[in-house]
């Protein structure tokens, strides 16, 4: 059991380390691209791809950033109801929440991949990028959230065994 927990925990940590760097690059890129958009339009000639790239960086930042928020428990939730219970029940609610989330993520990952399969032809208007690459952010980021959920669940199980305390 401890091995399973350690595995998911480590996987979740390492992925998050990587995603944090990726998100930093995305946001820095977003600042750079949007600034260039203004500078080039005003002082030189307008860039043809900057608006589209900004939007796609925002989408990527959104979904990968959402994995970081998920790992840190930052997504907004109503907690007053489950706060009313004891530790054990709260743990169970937490496991249930993670399972429900995994259900949602899995469906979106599956259908996101279906969508990508159907979009082999579509290209983006300004950058002429295949849309499938841009769409990849959805299944990939939701897979990462599944990893974080599994890590969360396995920690709760350890907690049960040790009498309600999360290690």
């Amino acid at each position: 059991m401890n091995k399973v927990v350690d595995f998911f925990d480590l996987l979740s940590q390492k992925t998050d380390w990587l995603v944090t760097r990726l998100v930093f690059v995305i946001i820095a890129g977003l600042v750079l691209v949007t600034t260039s958009q203004v500078v080039f339009r005003v002082f030189f000639t307008a860039l043809s791809w900057s608006e589209e790239l900004s939007r796609y960086l925002l989408v990527w930042g959104t979904f990968f950033g959402a994995t970081m928020a998920y790992k840190r428990g930052n997504h907004i939730a109503l907690t007053f109801f489950i706060e009313a219970f004891g530790k054990k029940v709260k743990s169970m609610f937490n496991i249930l929440m993670n399972i429900l989330s995994i259900v949602f993520f899995s469906f979106v990952v599956y259908y996101g991949s279906q969508m990508i399969k159907m979009q082999v032809f579509q290209i983006s208007p300004a950058l002429s990028l295949p849309m499938k690459y841009i769409y990849y952010c959805i299944p990939v980021s939701l897979c990462i959230m599944i990893i974080h959920s599994l890590a969360g669940i396995s920690k709760e199980f350890i907690g049960f065994r040790n009498g309600g305390e999360v290690q």
């Binding site: 998100v23 946001i27 820095a28 950033g65 840190r72 930052n74």
Partner: peptide, 17 residues
């Protein structure tokens, strides 16, 4: 600061999505 802002932003954007 950038990564912290990214988390805040994505919480809002994920709801919008």
């Amino acid at each position: 600061i950038v990564t912290r802002s990214a988390i805040t932003m994505s919480v809002i954007m994920f709801i919008i999505a």
